[in-house]
Design a protein around this nucleic acid. Structure first.
Lengths: 144, 144
DNA sequence: CCCTTATTGAGAATATATCTCAATTTTAAT
DNA sequence: ATTAAAATTGAGATATATTCTCAATAAGGG
């Protein structure tokens, strides 16, 4: 069975780049983690695990992961971005709590379809999109 | 006929705040401009028109305008935000060209509805949302 | 092993936006 | 008009996220 990391290795090598220990380490962490990680969080986790990958390398590798299609970048709306691997997920959008910061996912295939139609009508070639809804999650809404 | 600026004045005064010359000047510029302005652009325009409103005041007033509902804030996806007045516009989403930076609008009422349903299902109280599609606009796509 | 090219880390740089606080302006009450 | 209380302002400091720079290092092919 092919791991996500080995898919990333293929992507890297197909581009004529090097699959370095740093890149491996970062990729493995992203693929093993099921939360929505932001870059600084990821950097911290890597440090506790003994990786010496620098901030610059983390950001650079995240860009490569997104480019490969194995990872999605989510705009958190406050200047930060989160990353999540796409393996086994169909596309989904996000409900972002502006109080506790939690990120919930929701799926609505029809929305995707409507977006495609809108692009087609406008002669727009989409490379990605971001649908975030900001507000209060169930539990923050209750205690508000 | 009520101008958007006078509506903003009402909003400000209803909150017990002062409708200052700076706020008037900023509001008028936003309401008279039909493009998607970012804060720095707006600041530059105001300077050329002789306003001495500072950066801090521009940002603060934009927040008030958004709060009033007369202006929408659009996350441009690169860390910046753009602002557009809502007068005479129904809600719409954006096609953002990652080559030339143009922002096109599209409307799809059904998408709004599907979002509302998703929130309801999740017990999520939305305060705002952002649907941006990134890619190449018709003309950039042609010359690419 | 050597050469070329890619990658890395450390810290500087950039960019957007927010915060601080003393000075000023606004409004309403005298 | 004066005045007092409260809101607002500007200038610059600060915060935060991300990108850039560049010399040193590592990777892989011949």
């Amino acid at each position: 069975m092919r791991t996500e990391t080995s898919r990333f290795k293929d992507y890297i090598e197909t581009k004529g780049l090097y699959f370095t220990p740093e890149r491996q380490c970062i990729a493995e962490e992203v693929f093993s983690n099921h939360k929505h990680l932001d870059a600084e969080e990821l950097l911290k986790i890597l440090k506790t695990k003994g990786s010496k990958a620098s901030r610059a390398t983390v950001y650079r590798t995240l860009d490569l992961l997104v480019e490969s299609g194995l990872v999605d970048k989510i705009d958190l709306g406050d200047g930060r971005a989160a990353y999540e691997h796409t393996a086994g997920h169909t596309h989904h959008d996000h409900l972002i709590c502006i109080k506790c910061g939690s990120v919930e996912e929701f799926e609505e295939p029809l929305i995707e379809q409507l977006q495609d139609w809108a692009c087609e009508k406008a002669g727009f070639k989409a490379t990605g999109h971001n649908l975030n809804i900001y507000g209060y999650c169930r539990s923050c809404n209750a205690t508000q």
